[in-house]
Design a protein around this nucleic acid. Structure first.
Lengths: 203, 203
DNA sequence: CTCATAACCAAACAATCGTTTGCTTTTTAA
DNA sequence: TTAAAAAGCAAACGATTGTTTGGTTATGAG
């Protein structure tokens, strides 16, 4: 009974198991490169059995996407919760959490940058909404920065997100850590704003 | 005969026609979201007829990819050929040409950022090689920059390329032009290096 | 005209796709 | 103990996939 209670995790973690496996396939083979049979086989069941848990392949993607957004959001929120620095430090903290979620741990967060809404037309609208909802966190963080009046904050945000979401394409384990990358990324942007003040004073 | 000579472009632009159509589909639906029949129908022929021009779907992608790399490379080279400024100006010029190729004109260049090698395992190696070959241009441009000793040039390059290749995901016609975007992107990075000198002198 | 080659059609191939259906097994709750 | 609900199996559905094959039409050179 003691062992039994441990080995028997509890009800309905089977659905989560499917989600995890699906996330892995979506990340490595893309949405249209993954078949229902790929996922079912890896999950140890038959293709049709998946339809007890999800009404369609696109609904499955949506569920994975939602889990991804939830996890990366929570990671960023948690990291920001005990962040004591200025606005730049907070942005860097968010970037580090974002990168950590993308590169380490599960595949859920990775899916939301690997699969683009166009890949699943029937779910595209909701995927975009989910993504935008998450990225709004960065809107607030960037707008809190002390910036030049002629710097477009939304452009800075898009530039940063582009750089961050590109990392999984070249990242190799053993290189710079997510924490280190976040610091370097922010450093490359930070002084651009700080120093413009200096430049202004000089002229 | 006068009209005839115009309507009859010349031998074998049919293959290029197919490439253009394929590029459009690959950009809008992805590689695995596009079928041979999609392309054949749009090209006004039957699916099997494509195999006279290309031995496989992946070979077709490879041909599109090559054309994309060729075009964006030439765009950057041409732009750099009559660039008179310093290293930062030259990098900005390259970025502008890169963005122009991605956002305006044909779909060829867009394919090389929309389709990732993983999508076509059989051609992955060659796709990666093509992409790396092009991106080396930026290696040289970034290494020519006057930078801090503690700034990693290859990281700056990856950051910039990430930001650039992300633009097609949010770009809307009527907003900032590619030229404007390139200027703003570089501005966000430039002073970070320039001003660190100032900071050093201050301390 | 002749003939070879280029370009394409027409039709099918086996394989795989997402999905459905009806039935069986397992688990849960009363 | 028993009935209901959850979970999955077995098997197939029609549609679509990339690709092949053999024959047909167009074109251009000798």
């Amino acid at each position: 009974m003691t062992v039994r209670a441990k080995l028997k995790p509890q009800v309905n973690n089977r659905r989560e198991h499917i989600l995890e496996i699906a996330a892995g396939f979506f990340v490595r083979k893309g949405f249209n490169g993954t078949s229902i049979r790929d996922i079912a086989n890896a999950a140890g069941m038959l293709p049709g059995s998946l339809y007890y848990h999800f009404p369609s392949k696109e609904a499955l993607l949506l569920a994975v996407f939602e889990e991804g957004v939830t996890r990366i959001s929570e990671a960023v929120d948690t990291a920001l919760a005990d962040s004591r620095g200025d606005a730049w430090d907070r942005l860097q903290t968010a970037c580090q959490a974002h990168l950590s979620a993308l590169l380490e741990g599960s595949d859920f967060a990775h899916v939301i940058v690997r699969v683009i809404p166009q890949d699943a037309p029937g779910a595209a609208e909701e995927l975009v909404a989910l993504r935008n909802g998450y990225e709004e966190k960065f809107t607030a963080l960037v707008e809190a920065l002390p910036m030049l009046s002629d710097t477009d904050p939304s452009l800075l945000r898009l530039m940063l997100i582009g750089a961050l979401n590109h990392v999984p394409l070249w990242y190799r384990e053993g290189g710079e850590t997510p924490s280190c990358l976040a610091r370097l990324f922010i450093a490359n942007l930070r002084f651009a704003q700080d120093c413009s003040e200096t430049h202004k004073e000089e002229t």
